[in-house]
Design a protein around this nucleic acid. Sequence first.
DNA 1: AAACAATACGAACGGTCGTATTATTAGTTT
DNA 2: AAACTAATAATACGACCGTTCGTATTGTTT
Lengths: 201, 201
Amino acid sequence: MEKVDGRLVRGDQTRRAVLRRAVDIASVDGLEGLSIGRLASELGISKSGLFAHFGSKEELQLATIRAARRIYADAVVTPAFEVEPGLGRVRALSESWLEYSRQRVFPGGCFFAKVSHEYGARGGAVHEALAAVHLEWMGLIETTVREAVERGELEADPAQLAFDLNAYYESANLASILHGSESAYVQARQAIRARLESAGV
Amino acid sequence: MEKVDGRLVRGDQTRRAVLRRAVDIASVDGLEGLSIGRLASELGISKSGLFAHFGSKEELQLATIRAARRIYADAVVTPAFEVEPGLGRVRALSESWLEYSRQRVFPGGCFFAKVSHEYGARGGAVHEALAAVHLEWMGLIETTVREAVERGELEADPAQLAFDLNAYYESANLASILHGSESAYVQARQAIRARLESAGV
DNA sequence: AAACAATACGAACGGTCGTATTATTAGTTT
DNA sequence: AAACTAATAATACGACCGTTCGTATTGTTT
């Protein structure tokens, strides 16, 4: 049991602290580099105590993905959804994504770019969880674009435009972490602007 | 000494065999997942004998990157450079890149997409080698685009167009390995076609 | 034939990995 | 206060990690 009368008990606080550190580590060193012993010693708790919260390494990895997804949703999706549906929201989504990467919400850049490449060519539950998140994310962009199309503010194939926009995001993220430079974000912004302009009515 | 009268000696053959296997493993499991013991046992040689060829894990990783770069150059750059400079070569480069990813020249998809994300947020010689390859590659696209611009076949900022094209490549590669689907390549081709059309004179 | 490198080998090192078992602490309930 | 339960810790395990060592084998050079 994790809650009693809505009050958090000890165990859940630990779990949260573990996962908050886990997503940061994994964004730099990957879900494989995220080791239980290291995680425990960084948090000043015992390896066995930490392990007991998850029962297996894979379960820790899956929990880390879920935790990262929540942080991602808060940083990228929520701010964009405060803007009215339509072209404005498409722009807001692009802007909040680039800021999410640039501000290093995760210290290693985009968590999902990192671990999706790590587990892209492997089987297992982790791969499937990441593939599902990717589909979900692409669907969210596509829906956001479609709303703009339906409002007559854009003229484009929503899936195609979603692909293009996401490509700019990811590419800027990688160039930024590789070279520690912000110039890729400028290029991404320019690409987005030009692409949206060419799809303008 | 690795060569005598142009003839390969034993040691160099082993080195080549090791690196050929190493790039394949690393494209799936990363340069960290590339372990010396595993590599040796897959090749049926001793761990210590393999190790002696490189002297350290990091040196093996760097040699693996150089080997992958050669394969990449053969698969992507060489075919494109058989086409006359200009718009045709830009198209050929895009096509050979997508085929390089689609045909799984490396079993885990693009080797550099994989390991650049792996080492993007870490320091060290491996990171620097990958950053250098990235710069070299972006420069190559940019030069190819610039030749088309100078010939009056395109009207665009070469660096910007290079960024856009590379973004389509990488994004298709990731979507493909995550979902085992080829549809992302169709979207990438469409994105490239549209982008080049919009930059056409 | 003798000397010399180059290449490969098996065994072992200290460490860290994920995991299992067992014990201890702390909080809640009776 | 006693009993019970959830959370954390201690300890140990076999497997694998990168690395080092001494040694055998091979091929070339004198």
